[in-house]
Every structure is written in C-alpha cells, then in structure tokens.
Design a binder for these strands. Structure first.
Lengths: 218, 218
DNA sequence: CGGCGGCTTTTGTGATCACATGAAGGGATG
DNA sequence: CATCCCTTCATGTGATCACAAAAGCCGCCG
C-alpha cells in the first residue's frame, strides 16, 4: 500500500481547494486577518500555487460559513461586524457553549481536567506575553477540548462557525484589552467540572463567553 | 436606469451559481429530495443550463451548510442522518428557536399574530391534504415569520441551517406521521403570544419543535 | 482647488478541456 | 454458480481562457 493511499486527511494529499480552505479558515478563526481586509481569488491562488478554481471554492465555502463577506459584486473581504451582530454572536456562543459544557460534564474525567489545566496554563502564558493570536488559539483549544466530550458534533460545528465569524473581530477586540490577568473564568469552569456542579458550570461558561464582549458597549 | 441594474436579488439577474444554489436549497429544505439521493455536477449543470463551474460552487456552498454530503471521493448526496444526529439537531432547534421566539415576543403586535393565524390555517390545510412538502414549507414559514420579529439575523440564519440539514429527513419522517390533526402546538404558540406569556411561549415552541422527532425513537 | 468624466486595470464569472480516480459491468475461471 | 479481475464509463478536480463589470486613476473643466 502506498503512503498516499491514506483516507485523505493529511494536509499534503488533500485536494487543493481543501488545503486552501483549511489554511484560510484557521487564519480567520485565530484572528490573523484584520476585519475588512480584502482578498482576491488570483491573490489566494498565487499564494498557494494553485489556479483561481480551488481558491474560488475555498472562498465560497468560507463565505457560506460567515467567515468571509462577499459584496454584491463578488468582492471578498473579512466581515466588519456591527455591535448588534457581535452581541448576537455572543448570545449564540452562550446558548451553544453552555449546552455543550453541560453535556460534557457527566463525561469529564480526571484526564480531561488535567488536559484543560495544561491548556489553561498556555492561555495564561499567551496573555502575559500579550500574544493576541496565541491567546485566541489556546483559548479556543480550551473550549474545544471540553466540548469534544459532549459527543455532539453538530452542536460543536455550530459553535465553531460562530468562532469563525468572530475571528477577525476578536483580534481587534483583545487588542484593546489591556489586562494581563490569567483567565479567571477558566478556573471557575475547571472547579465546577471537578465538583460536578452543573449550575456553576453553566454560569462560568456563560461568563467566560460573554465577558470579552462587554467592553464594546462603551 | 436599466431594469437589470437592481441590487441583485431577483431570480433572473442573479449570477448563475446563485440561482442554482437557491433552487437546490429550497428543494432540500422543503424535503423534495429523499435522503441519500445522489447528485452530479454535470447533471445539475444540465438541468439549469449552465456548465459545471456554477454547479460546483452551489454544491460546495450547500455542503458547507450541511445540506449536502460530500463523500471522500467528492461524490455528492443528500445526507442520511443517524438517529443521534437527528436528536442533536432537534436539540439545536429547541435551543435556537426558543430563544428566537422569546426575543420576538415583546415585538409581536396584532398584525403579526394575524399573519401567523393565516399561515397556520394553511398549515392545517396541508396536513389535511397529506401534502408533506406543502406542510414542511408552510410550517417553516410559520416559524420564520415569528422569528423575523426577533431582529436576530445571525440566530435566524443558524436556525435555517438546521432546517436545511433536517430537510430531506423531515420528508421521510412526516411520511410515517399518519395524523391529520391541525397543529396543536402552533395554537399554543399563538395563545402565548397574545397573552404575553413568555414561559408558556418557550414551552410551546420547545414542544412544537421536538414533537415530530420523538417517533423515531421506536 | 475641487469635482467630474473617461480610460485603464483589476477582479469575479462562466465555459471548456485534459486528467486522475473510483465505480460499475462483464467475462473468464475455479 | 459464485468470485475475482479487468475493462470501460462516469464523475470530480484543476487549469486556462474570454468576457463583463466594477474600481481606481488621471487629467480636464469649472
């Protein structure tokens, strides 16, 4: 059997449009692209060494997920979110992630909690280094690790879609955030997991998810 | 000004890939395609009189929304949902739509309630005629009309994505459903709206959304 | 000095083609 | 009669091209 005969999940053997899609998706979700930035199909194709065709498919896919905005003439930019939309997406995060955490709770064993604590220390490190992209990445990793235990793939996919839509804006948001405190709400989440305290967990997740979005009210 | 200079929302002047997308989307959401049905890019292109390119874009977009399933080799079919996934999607409907209804409640005036009652009589008619597609269509129209008042476009879009994923399965589901009763839960929703009873509304929406999915447990 | 009109360039759209891959069908063999 | 293999066909992928429309730019005119 050839080594390229794998079920196709590797970054190398995957179709071109999929590689482009995945790379752009991660960039957007981690806030590596500023809101309103313009992308061009030929530019994307050039960067990845492919033609316009796979670039177009990747862009369409991302636009369908709300990660990119397509103007009426087809021009593609990262979305610039209004305050109303940000609040709505925060509400969606609260709805979905509270449910996911709640479903993960009965399955959360010690190994998971250990992993969460390790990730959380990475989060704290990123905060202290003021590394915005690193913070977003590790923070999402923290949440995803917990929610994977919920055994609810459709719900998790939806939560990730919301993260994706918030990606470019989050970067700008946490740029204003001048705190260097380690994430307090993450500790509350871990504590609630240890104690098997479901109401506490729901509250902690809700607080963690909505806290970062409060500052834009002013 | 030319008549084709409109902001591009018309079915005619819109780009080809968008026409294809919208047509397929409606078909899938209304359950006009059975689960597991295979589609081909050349077939779609032939039906709409376009080449493979717009067909591919429409299919990618729909696949990104979960409306279509792409096998590892790229073959495209409507999804065949497992029971676990259906239950999960039902839970998502409950989460999202209860919230949407709750947000619509304070803005629900008499004109809206009248419209809902009109739509509801159409739903009852479809039920009595055993028109599955018509039932799904009018039922979704009932829900969408209510949720539009919530002024929460992102949340509504997410609910529609769930409807889309359930589309092909719903048809098969309501095929087994041998009732000819008019929708009781819709009446409860309307009554709660009239009374301004938020807890009652939440319960009625939750019941309406999850009732149709109970029968697959057996 | 500012607004406006026309030109040029950039960009997305859609069609067509060559290619590789996976599925289906048929025939030979045990 | 079933099974395996090979041929053939259908299908998705990606590149390239022609076209139209939008955006940007520059100079002209008020």
């Amino acid at each position: 059997m050839n080594s390229a005969t794998r079920p196709t999940q590797d970054t190398a053997s995957a179709p071109a449009h999929d590689r482009v899609y995945r790379t752009l998706r991660t960039r957007i979700m981690h806030g590596e692209i500023t809101p309103g930035a313009a992308l061009t199909l030929r530019g994307i194709g050039g960067e990845f060494g492919v033609s316009m065709t796979p670039a177009r498919e990747a862009v369409r896919r991302l636009a369908a997920e709300g990660a990119l905005f397509l103007s009426s003439s087809g021009r593609v930019t990262t979305p610039e979110l209004t305050n109303e939309r940000i609040e709505e997406l925060a509400a969606l995060r609260a709805l979905l992630e509270v449910e996911l955490a709640s479903r993960a709770l009965p399955r959360a064993h010690m190994a998971l909690i250990d992993r969460l604590q390790t990730i959380n220390s990475n989060v704290a490190e990123m905060v202290s280094k003021r590394d915005a992209v690193g913070y977003i990445r590790t923070n999402l990793e923290f949440h995803r690790t917990l929610y994977l235990r919920a055994q609810a793939p459709a719900m998790l996919a939806m939560a990730e879609t919301v993260w994706l839509q918030l990606g470019p804006t989050m970067r700008a948001l946490y740029g204003r955030l001048r705190r260097t405190d380690p994430p307090q709400n993450h500790r509350l989440i871990i504590a609630a997991l240890k104690a098997g305290d479901e109401p506490g967990l729901r509250l902690a997740v809700r607080s963690d998810v909505t806290q970062g979005l409060r500052l834009l009210a002013g």
